[in-house]
Computed example of a mutant assay.
Amino acid sequence: MITSTEQIQTTHFAVTARGLSKTYGRGETAVAALKGIDISFPAGKFTAIMGPSGSGKSTLMHCLAGLDTATSGTIHLGGTELTGLSDKLLTQLRRDRIGFVFQAFNLVPTLTAEDNITLPVALAGGTVDKEWFTFITTTLGLTERLAHKPHELSGGQQQRVAVARALLTRPQVVFGDEPTGNLDSRAGAEVLGMLRRSSREMGQSIIMVTHDPVAAAYADRVVLMSDGELVGELANPTAESVMAALATLGA
């Protein structure tokens, strides 16, 4: 059974993994993508996950978000263990308590910005919290763009719509998979600034996979991976400190 919101909020961490392993294939062709990962992500903080190609960072995020199943180990979202949840309960958990921002904006082209933002609530048969909707769309600078369709918005505006959609249900954690990968530097900085604000001003927990040291510098903490293992982390990162750390990993 999914833990109540009241119970969830008592936990210090948004997401915790213990002994997390993921192996693809069997026998001689088996590939260990994650090797016994132990990690916790503090609630209300912005964490970036980085590492060379093939380091396991995307696999880690997909397992933490319930998009992929681990071979062994446990994952807790607040007070709820994801490991072993039925498909139905896992789908419900992702819908109600997790937000996603992907490299592709994943907006419905025939819907307005407002309808794209409220789509998950509509699909779940819920009611939009109008006060919260107004707050996040104002904070994200979308007030004058709500009646526009995606093709009438810039890339940065489209991604801000995706961020608003992710925040609308007040998720316990927002996962970002290269959220600025399709944006130019100015639009990317705009979106990253909004993600940082959502963490610092709204208390939103954010976990982002990125290959970009500049993007990672917006986070409170950078977790470094190599060959399916955690190999270090940086607090209060700068683009320079991230680049130096990645250089030691051959990234």
Rank of each mutant, 00 (worst) to 15 (best):
S4P: 08
T5C: 11
Q9K: 12
T10Y: 09
R18Y: 06
G19W: 13
K22C: 03
R26D: 07
G27R: 01
G36T: 10
K45G: 07
F46Y: 06
T47D: 12
M50S: 04
S53D: 08
S55K: 08
L60D: 09
A70I: 06
I75Q: 10
T83W: 10
K88L: 06
V101Q: 11
V101G: 08
F105V: 01
L107I: 00
T110V: 14
L111Q: 00
E114L: 01
D115R: 00
N116V: 00
N116W: 02
I117M: 01
A124R: 07
A124S: 09
G125V: 08
G126C: 04
T127D: 05
K130L: 03
F133W: 01
T137E: 02
T139F: 11
T143V: 13
E152M: 13
S154W: 14
G155I: 14
V161C: 04
A166R: 02
L167W: 01
V173G: 12
V174P: 04
D177E: 12
L183I: 06
L183G: 05
D184S: 10
S185F: 06
R186H: 14
M194F: 10
R200P: 05
R200S: 10
P213E: 09
P213W: 10
V214Q: 13
V214Y: 15
A216I: 02
A217Q: 07
D220E: 08
V222C: 11
V222W: 02
L230G: 04
G232L: 04
E233G: 06
S241E: 06
V242Y: 01
A245F: 11
L246D: 06
L249A: 07
